[in-house]
Each structure stands twice: as C-alpha cells, then as structure tokens.
Amino acid sequence: MTKLNWVVLGTGTIANEFATHFKAEKAVLYGVASRSLEKSEAFAEKYDIPHAYSSYAEALADQNVEVVYIAVPHSHHYQLIKAALKAGKHVLCEKVITVNGEQLREVTQLAEENHLYLAEAMTIFNMPLYRTLKEWIRENDLGPLKMIQASFGSFKDTDPSVYYFNKALAGGALFDIGTYALSFVRHFLSSKPTEILTLGNLHESGVDESSAIILRNEEQELATVSLTFRAKMPKQGVVAFEKGFLTIMDYPRPTQATFTSYDGKHQTIEAGDTVQALNYEVANFTDMILGKKENKTLPLTMDVVEIMDTVRKEWGLEYPFE
C-alpha cells in the first residue's frame, strides 16, 4: 500500500495535538521541523518521529517529504505555503490558511501550476458528522433553508507574548475562532454570500475583540455570526429550514446533531469521534492526493477568507505585514 510521508512545520500546541493522535492508514509522520534543531529533536523523540530538521528549508529540501502540515502562527502561513509548493510538496495548512484573499489566490494558482494539492486544515470540512448531515438533509424533505446562526465566545489572555492579541502574529477573534463560525455557515449555505453587514470592536492591541456579522446570498438564505475573545459563549450552530432546524453543539468538532421539526419532534444524528478530528483531515487529504480527487474544500475556504477581507475592511483592521 502506498503511504505518503508527512512532515510537520512547527512544534507548538496544535502540532503537539496533531502528533499525539496521529494514526493514518495511508500516511506516515516522517519528520518535524522548527527554527531550532533542539526543539525539533525533542519533538521527534517525544512522538517517535524518525526525522528532525534544523529549519523549515531543510525539511522542504528533503526529496522524501511529500506532504507538509503547517502549524505555525497565522502570520507565517503564506510564506511557508509558497516555499512548500515551490519545493513540490502538497500542503495542508492550519486555519486561517492565509490572512487575505490576495495571498490565497496567489498560492492557489501556484498549487495548480505545479499540479499540487493545497487545503486548509478546517475540521468542519472533514468531520464525518457534516457529510452525514448533508446526506440526511438530501434524503429528508425539510423545505428551503432559511437561517443559519453560529456563535463562538472564548475568554483569552491579553498577554501579547501569545498570538491571540498580538497584531504582529495576525491575532484576533476573527482568524482564531471566526474562521470556524464562517466555515460552518458556508458549509450549509447554497452559495457564497453576496451581501455582508458587520459591526466589530477592536481591542487596544489593535486586533478584533468582538464582532457580529450578517450574511445573505442570492437564494435569500440568511446567516448571523457572533464572536468574542473576552467572554464565554457556547459553540452552537443552528441551521433552520422551513420544516425544522438542526442544532449542533461544539460545532468545530461535533459528533452529534439534533433535528427539531416544526411540530416539536426530535431526532438525533450521530457520526465520528472528536478525538480523531485531525486524523480525519489527514485521511481525507491523503485520499484526495492518492486518488487525484477534486479539491472541493478550497473554494469554500476562499469564500470564507474573502468574507473576512470584507469585514476587516469595514472594521479598519489591517496587519502590519500586509
């Protein structure tokens, strides 16, 4: 059986989670790279990874590396994606994939020119429950989609040494948690939003702290997104059709949804395992590469990034490296 060699760029929190649970039928965790050989070697020893690199460039120069998983701060995604694609590697990049649409369009074109796959490591596009829900919706007469609601509130420390409120590292609620809410919304909308309204509050650090976003597409489907980095709110998604609504709690990595019909009846739909969230990304991306399948998630990611471009412009939020 063909197995693809994966390398992780970065040794932070998400990279540790990725390595902790890594288990794939058609992929091997071949190496890890950091800006420090000491960090790479410690990470490799911890997770029994055979190769440790002293730099990202060294990892990308290894001809045995086939797929790169980028797990560094948002501000560094664009440059590393470009470098990986130019080195002939397929790329799965942590969210948010790039900080603006211009960057994403450039690397998308680069991937196409080099016949490589590029995707965002967005759990919502990979959790089995969402595929099951799409099938369930098709099989049941729910009437037209009317409204989607997505909320996400998290209380984050304002310490600038952490990226959450660090403008130089592309911090802010939109890129950290808003990308989940908008990806949830876009997954269910019939088409890309054509109208976008928003209000946002900026923190003294210069990044977005709280916001509300309203979306509408050509089918007249509406969506509302509520985000904050300074208060807890449930990670709750609601998808309302004419004949009832779906409620998905903890929607970034859900395993269960409840459908409530217009006459008050309830039905539970279940699929997947939260612990395997990142492995679903690995499996799907690997299958896409080996099977030469159509990349169906990148267009959705592009829509989400372009929505974020619009709302940031409205808020007056621009990052120094843009």
Rank of each mutant, 00 (worst) to 15 (best):
residue 31 G to F: 04
residue 22 F to H: 13
residue 34 S to Y: 01
residue 80 L to R: 12
residue 39 K to Y: 03
residue 15 A to F: 05
residue 168 A to E: 13
residue 81 I to P: 13
residue 26 K to T: 07
residue 187 H to W: 03
residue 60 L to T: 05
residue 201 N to Y: 15
residue 319 Y to H: 07
residue 55 S to F: 00
residue 235 K to C: 02
residue 122 M to A: 12
residue 297 T to S: 11
residue 255 T to E: 15
residue 315 W to D: 11
residue 182 L to M: 10
residue 242 E to Y: 07
residue 302 M to N: 09
residue 265 K to D: 02
residue 106 E to G: 13
residue 308 M to T: 12
residue 289 I to Y: 14
residue 77 H to G: 03
residue 189 L to W: 10
residue 229 F to Q: 11
residue 78 Y to Q: 12
residue 109 Q to A: 14
residue 86 K to I: 11
residue 12 G to V: 01
residue 200 G to W: 05
residue 105 R to I: 12
residue 80 L to Q: 14
residue 155 F to E: 07
residue 164 Y to E: 14
residue 64 N to F: 08
residue 58 E to W: 09
residue 7 V to S: 13
residue 283 A to I: 01
residue 177 I to M: 03
residue 240 A to Q: 03
residue 98 T to K: 13
residue 237 G to W: 07
residue 86 K to P: 10
residue 320 P to S: 09
residue 155 F to V: 09
residue 260 T to R: 13
residue 321 F to G: 09
residue 119 A to C: 11
residue 55 S to W: 02
residue 215 L to R: 12
residue 190 S to G: 06
residue 231 A to Q: 15
residue 27 A to N: 05
residue 100 N to L: 05
residue 209 E to D: 15
residue 147 M to W: 04
residue 271 A to N: 08
residue 275 V to N: 03
residue 144 P to F: 09
residue 15 A to K: 02
residue 100 N to I: 14
residue 7 V to R: 00
residue 254 P to V: 00
residue 96 V to T: 14
residue 206 G to A: 07
residue 41 E to Y: 03
residue 90 H to D: 13
residue 194 T to Y: 14
residue 113 E to P: 01
residue 91 V to N: 15
residue 274 T to F: 07
residue 66 E to A: 03
residue 279 N to S: 10
residue 54 S to G: 07
residue 150 A to V: 03
residue 302 M to E: 10
residue 131 R to K: 07
residue 241 F to H: 09
residue 142 L to T: 03
residue 7 V to L: 00
residue 196 I to F: 06
residue 3 K to W: 06
residue 264 G to E: 04
residue 33 A to K: 02
residue 188 F to G: 00
residue 198 T to A: 15
residue 211 S to A: 15
residue 321 F to N: 05
residue 50 P to W: 06
residue 229 F to E: 07
residue 40 S to V: 00
residue 239 V to I: 15
residue 320 P to F: 14
residue 314 E to Q: 02
residue 97 I to R: 10
residue 302 M to W: 09
residue 1 M to T: 12
residue 32 V to Y: 06
residue 77 H to E: 01
residue 118 L to G: 12
residue 239 V to R: 04
residue 5 N to V: 05
residue 259 F to A: 04
residue 180 Y to V: 01
residue 301 T to C: 02
residue 172 G to R: 01
residue 275 V to H: 00
residue 305 V to Q: 11
residue 154 S to Q: 05
residue 193 P to R: 13
residue 108 T to P: 04
residue 307 I to N: 08
residue 252 P to N: 12
residue 322 E to G: 14
residue 118 L to D: 11
residue 197 L to W: 14
residue 181 A to G: 09
residue 102 E to P: 11
residue 17 E to T: 02
residue 312 R to S: 06
residue 317 L to M: 08
residue 189 L to M: 01
residue 36 S to E: 08
residue 244 G to K: 03
residue 320 P to W: 13
residue 235 K to I: 06
residue 294 E to P: 01
residue 20 T to V: 05
residue 48 D to A: 08
residue 72 V to W: 10
residue 251 Y to G: 08
residue 102 E to N: 15
residue 57 A to E: 15
residue 113 E to D: 14
residue 175 F to S: 06
residue 13 T to Y: 02
residue 226 S to Y: 02
residue 28 V to N: 04
residue 136 W to I: 03
residue 30 Y to F: 04
residue 16 N to S: 04
residue 161 S to C: 09
residue 122 M to Q: 02
residue 15 A to L: 07
